[in-house]
Design a binder for these strands. Structure first.
Lengths: 223, 223, 223, 223
DNA sequence: CATGAATGAGAGTTCATTCAT
DNA sequence: AATGAATGAACTCTCATTCAT
């Protein structure tokens, strides 16, 4: 829980972002004080307010940026592809890789919605709904064309989202599992869950997703 | 987010438990004030301290009881059964039903570990580890005897746990899905994920799990 | 400007009221910190919040009570009296005596309207308007019946109100001037300003006003 | 209470003065932040410090200039005139006109003495005392020569000063009352209060005072 | 001339907790 | 069993002010 004082190498705004990300993810929004943020960013608590509005603004920006990135990646992986299987594979991989590579952002999005005021929350929920619609469409079309089979597609969608998002809670880049393997493995699980033919998992495509996700997240803080 | 003042029908200790459960689940431990608890329980904040130790004690007790119940149910469903498939089915169902029926407790366990002091956290983590060992054993034995197939059993275990636990975040008893159907559906997904033969899902057994879970949780607060 | 810590003889709520009165009058609302109030009341700053809402609530209550007392006294001195001269004399005396005996409350009302939020301000302004209407009626009727003469009655009303209220800024009960003399003197000035016959000032009536004002203000803090 | 950002037409120093005047009068010294001033003046808060010393210096300068102008006008209206009646008429008119034409400055002088540090306050109080001495002399001489009658000349002086100064709180140049009429009216009230012969009010002289006051205040900010 | 960056001190308010009754 | 009173510490946020650029 000890957070070392940030070296003053990066611009202050970045250091604040990074500190917020780390602390909100580790201790929660309400568990993180403005002084914790200041110390972790290497500034006085008063100086924080040159770069941010309120503490909630800081949280909101983090959440909206994270959702925007998931949305961008999701749209890119889905657009123009008529095959529900490869679209779902792409969404699973984007989701898994984003959560594996950016567990802080994604954990904050998943946990701290309730800390937002109603108006702010609504704006993030709208993004989340748009994102989940990509999943819904892929699964429903797959079921309609019988490449997927599920007795309750809506439930399966939620189950898969939870499953893939859970990666943020345990994946370590220092572990034995390479990213592409992870993405492939989750795709297999998802295809199994939807009774799709397992042979359809395309390892090469999965490798390309890693590039896509990295590109979309750009220079974003990685832990 | 509005919590109506509890009717003074139940004993005070129960009202406090219930208030804590509701509020910790809805707003988080740090987001819930002692005065919120008092109001929701229909007592003065000073009176709370007749029934609980500190706010953290209250949280710890909730978490340990919840884990103890999961452990009890898990052991009962597993003990004496040599078949990895039916053991895993039982674990999936216990997990899903517990999370569906007791989303408050399970959400608190899943979210608020970080709010505990190190010593308290360790005692809950120990319970969680014991519980996850039941899953590990079933999956590993199933892979060894080739009734399951997974390229990374440890990853699959984590993925399934996240997936089943996610139920707490969305299941509504007022929705279209009956509990047993839900349990069966998740078992199918899990078997699919592990490439087990789908025909092995035993609907009647799933129905019995609902009784088991209800019994283990006893009179516990249900939402 | 040094305010000695209050002896703990009076109930806390009274001590807070008294402290607020003294400090708001001496240093202004914005010039008085919550910690100043606490020290002057002999409590910790946290304890203040057992007895009051916000700092502004405290101010608002003081102002509304003061205006309510002026209104009560004003109505009592005016009701049922058809003679504009004695009504004006009564109003002048109530105003002067109230300001002389309760300079803190009246100074706060006169100075700190601007510190109130719009809604709160409106509620005090409404009281003030009702009070000034008593003056307006007396002066206008007096001019109509030609016992008063003024080329601009509205201006004269404002001028007299300012003049009488100014007493709060300099009158000292330890000075040479007795209260009744003060009240009579201001009545004479007012009658002069309105060109009324000076002989009409009733010293005995003025003496009775002192009793009335004391009664209306009751146990209110006097400095 | 909304203060529009000043057009950058005037020199910065003037814009700051004007902003301070407006805001100190409207919200009080303690109610006005350095950032409010900066915004109203159209500068950054750091830039303010090129033109002023501390916030208190700014206040002090405003107050001393205002008092200096009152003093100048008072002296000019009094010097060489042996008649207490015309001297008092002149003082009343200077006071009323100054407060009517420059309500911001005069309100600040009247309200914010308490916001000054002891040393600064003393320097303004000295000016005020010198100014009030002009009034004292006129009234006392008038009483001695029996052109005035008052049972308590000191009280009457204070009463008249409060009354005339009150003009700043309500006079509007857009109202029906012309300046000279206002000055004449107050002179009549004052003469009435002092039981002087009303016929002595010199309307032509009053008109000249308007010119005098305008000249003394020169280009000073007018509202 | 003007400002962005920075800060120690302090603002009003709430925190979890204790204790005498 | 229950609470009103009380508080030190902490909260988020703003204050007036400085200084390098």
């Amino acid at each position: 829980m000890t957070v070392t004082k940030a070296a003053k190498s990066a611009p202050a705004a970045d250091r604040i972002r990074r500190a917020a990300l780390t602390l909100f993810a580790a201790k929660g929004f309400h568990g993180t004080g403005i002084r914790d943020l200041a110390e972790a960013a290497g500034l006085s608590s008063a100086s924080l307010y040159h770069y941010m509005g309120t503490k909630e603004d800081l949280l909101l920006r983090i959440m909206r940026e994270c959702m925007a990135r998931l949305l961008t990646a999701g749209h890119r992986v889905v657009t123009g592809d008529p095959d529900p299987r490869s679209r779902l594979a792409g969404l699973v991989q984007v989701h898994v890789l984003s959560h594996a590579l950016h567990p802080l952002e994604t954990a904050v999005v998943d946990h701290e919605l309730r800390a937002l005021s109603p108006a702010a929350r609504a704006s993030v929920v709208a993004q989340r709904d748009e994102y989940e619609d990509l999943w819904r469409a892929a699964i429903e079309e797959g079921c309609a064309s019988e490449v997927f089979r599920s007795s309750a597609p809506a439930v399966t969608r939620l189950a898969l989202l939870e499953m893939c998002g859970g990666v943020a809670r345990w994946y370590s880049p220092r572990g034995r599992l390479a990213l592409t393997e992870l993405a492939v493995h989750y795709t297999e699980i998802a295809f199994g869950a939807l009774r799709a033919e397992p042979s359809t998992v395309d390892t090469e495509a999965a490798r390309l997703r890693t590039g896509l996700v990295s590109e979309v997240w750009g220079g974003a803080v990685r832990r």
